[in-house]
């Protein structure tokens, strides 16, 4: 079972994602961070197999947190899950910073699991 850190300032999204991941039986959610600063802290502490992270967040946004996580571990697998996932510039920025994929909100269970399952 792969461990996942869920990062989103919305508790609604954190609950939605956790439910999808846990019910699949393939993923275990090891933490929920509500902003980028907390995400970096939790990433260091729990070293999850995967990170699912929002882009627009308070304190430290997802792009900055992604860069910091990749500095800590260049092999970190981060999937950005964001309502701005349909904006070409944002997608390019995420991929250049090292995200392995970008999922648009609103998402459904199949899409999230298909993308995470494809991450090697």
């Amino acid at each position: 079972m792969r461990s996942v850190l869920v990062v989103d300032d919305s508790t609604t999204v954190a609950k939605q994602l956790s439910k999808i991941l846990e019910e699949s039986g393939r993923y275990k959610v090891v933490g929920h961070a509500a902003d980028g600063l907390e995400a970096v802290k939790q990433f260091k502490a729990s070293t999850p197999d995967l990170v699912c992270m929002d882009v627009v967040m308070p304190n430290l946004d997802g792009m900055q947190a992604l860069r910091m996580i990749k500095q800590i571990n260049g092999d970190a697998r981060v999937v950005m899950i964001s309502s701005v996932g349909g904006v070409a510039d944002k997608v390019a920025e995420c991929l250049k910073a090292g995200a392995v994929n970008v999922v648009s909100k609103p998402f459904d269970a199949k899409k999230v699991l298909d993308v995470l399952d494809s991450v090697k």
Partner: peptide
Amino acid sequence: MAVRFFGQY
């Protein structure tokens, strides 16, 4: 289920 750009799709 969202507005996407073709590359991200």
